[in-house]
Design a protein around this nucleic acid. Structure first.
Lengths: 254, 254
DNA sequence: CGGAATGTTGAACCGTTTCAAACGGAGTGG
DNA sequence: CCACTCCGTTTGAAACGGTTCAACATTCCG
């Protein structure tokens, strides 16, 4: 097995291992899967609503977003995928996709056939468990987004998305701290939050004014994490990322 | 095995079988699980955010709703559970619950220990598959709700919820057709749709005026199903209820 | 460099909220 | 059977958060 292959796939394993106690043996099992690697430019579709793929895609680098489009053409972004995530795991069990996944930046994607993944999951219960946990966490995030979109005002809503995003990224090898890039246009932010691009613009400005965020071109920095968390009413528990139910929320300091 | 026991549990099996090709053998397996049955009054909590139950609950009769409460006390209903559903399946794989489940009407709940369900899922792959599919469908519904709450106006939003609800119920043994009871207060509807009870009231009145719905006390009847579907921009595909990917959307006419 | 996409700003507008008051129906106790 | 209360519904008027439209500035990218 090549060095590169190990590098790519081990990110998937690390991601899965976050949520579960996957054994060393199972990690090796994952690394022995046949795969192909490919790059996609920003804006490419990785999955389309209605598709019935026969392989799964692991996001190795870059960001992607999942969205639905209503009959009237209005778009709602329902999730953001970060490196280490398999964006179409669900198609292992339900043939057709219910939403689109589109690339936010240039992305590297590793493709593994459904057959290989299914066999693996059948042979190793802890892998099947890891897949299930991944889906449950997605569901939990979806529920929090509903609360966000349905019941919070624009300021809180944006703050919350920023908190979630920072938290998810900080937990995955990036330097812990308050600065990160968020490569979304204001229109994409609007579609994620159920608002208008114009209003995103104005509210972002308010957040900058209040000293909760600062932004360079296409990115955001967070000067005061605690202040933003308070403004957002953010509680990371729904991300299920702490060591099994320790609920300290400070596990990334270790 | 008593006649009553078979009756209760077979509803769960029927529900699961809707989404999957579960074998007769596995159905029998399900029916042999030890269980206890209990009634809950309207308004009872079946599951609380943060709970770590060691058993699963199958809703045999009645309706329940799942909700989250923000730090400011604002509530968002994120799902409605109908008879045949297991409302805490996820706690088989993730210890703590991320939302509350509360009874909408008087409910009968059958309780099965996690141990028994886990053993069953391990022994019978098609049962594990069925559990997974159930979770995926919940996720798909959550995504559609995000689109509903984030991008549709009040009229469309209410219509869509009504469509989804009618569709899910019609597929499960109730007489197919246009009349059903919806035992939610206007405040609960508001919390499900990200609106205000007052505005629900006004919009409901508009829908009645437009002839899209008619309502008796605590229920709704739909005089013209097609008209409501059009007004809602409703497409049932996200419910994944058609025979495997037939995608006709008219399967309930058979 | 030029054109397209994204960001910024203002003013008018409107869907929804807020507050407040009144109404209705179901259940309870006298 | 009435009086009382509770909870949900109904209605109105005013206020507000967010949208819309339109113009202009900026950045990105070939």
């Amino acid at each position: 097995m090549t060095e590169k292959k190990i590098n790519q796939l081990s990110r998937m394993v690390d991601k899965i291992a976050l949520h579960t106690s996957i054994s060393v043996e199972d990690r090796v099992g994952l690394l022995e899967l046949p795969y192909t690697s490919r790059f996609f430019e920003a804006g490419s579709y990785l999955l389309r609503d209605g598709d019935t793929p026969n392989h799964s895609g692991l996001l190795v680098s870059g960001l992607a977003y999942r969205h639905k489009i209503g009959v009237d053409g209005l778009r709602q972004i329902v999730a953001i995928h970060i490196p280490g995530e398999v964006y179409d795991l669900q198609q292992l069990h339900v043939a057709t996709a219910d939403s689109n996944v589109q690339t936010l930046t240039r992305c590297e994607v590793v493709t593994i056939s459904h057959g290989a993944l299914r066999r693996l999951a059948e042979e190793r219960p802890s892998v099947a468990h890891a897949f299930f946990v991944t889906t449950i966490v997605e569901l939990s995030m979806a529920r929090e987004w509903m609360l966000n979109i349905g019941r919070r005002d624009a300021r809180t809503r944006i703050s919350h998305l920023l908190c979630e995003f920072a938290f998810r990224l900080d937990k995955h090898g990036l330097p812990p701290g308050q600065a990160y890039e968020l490569p979304m246009t204001q229109e994409q932010l609007a579609d994620a939050l159920g608002l208008t691009a114009v209003h995103i613009n104005r509210t972002l400005k308010i957040l900058v004014n209040d000293g909760l965020i600062a932004h360079s071109k296409r990115g955001v920095t967070i000067p005061d994490w605690e202040a933003l968390v308070t403004a957002a009413g953010f509680n990371s528990r729904y991300l299920h990322m702490s060591p099994p139910d320790a609920a300290t929320g400070a596990a990334h300091l270790a």
